[in-house]
């Protein structure tokens, strides 16, 4: 009975929920969402992979090419990699990845920085299903 005023107030106010798929709330400005790598600027130092607490990042490189892979299903969105990146090529969007039905990893390839820093276009951005 003590609840009655609240219940009546709720009866005459707008619903607290949104009609979700048709109305999506704007994300917050600093929300930590999808992790993206501007591979052109990446120097493949591997700092992100070493610091990642969920070990979802791997960085490998050979003589000319570096490969940066993100197992985004394992990513916890803490943003530690963004903090430690020395060239600030990592960033987080404010939105999250849409749900997926298949497990996948994101593989990005890029040229290693030559001594006269020559930046090539990223070769390919591919999603490989495991």
């Amino acid at each position: 009975m003590k609840m009655l005023p609240t219940v009546i107030a709720n009866l005459f106010s707008k619903p607290a929920t949104r009609n979700y798929p048709f109305f999506v709330r704007e994300p917050f400005e600093h929300a930590r969402g999808e992790l993206i790598n501007d591979i052109e600027r990446c120097i493949f130092c591997g700092a992100c992979a070493r610091k990642c607490p969920s070990q979802c990042l791997t960085v490998t490189k050979d003589k000319t090419e570096g490969i940066w892979t993100l197992e985004f299903f394992a990513c916890v969105g803490c943003g530690v990699c963004v903090d430690v990146c020395p060239v600030n090529c990592l960033s987080q969007k404010t939105t999250h990845r849409p749900v997926a039905v298949e497990r996948a990893v994101i593989t990005l390839r890029g040229k290693l920085p030559e001594r006269p820093a020559k930046k090539d276009r990223p070769d390919s951005i591919e999603k490989t299903a495991e």
Binding site: H30, C78, Q92
Partner: peptide
């Protein structure tokens, strides 16, 4: 929860 998300970036596990 909104306060948490807006100030830290994450909703629950704020890190």
């Amino acid at each position: 929860m909104d306060l948490n998300e807006a100030t830290t970036g994450n909703r629950v596990i704020v890190s």
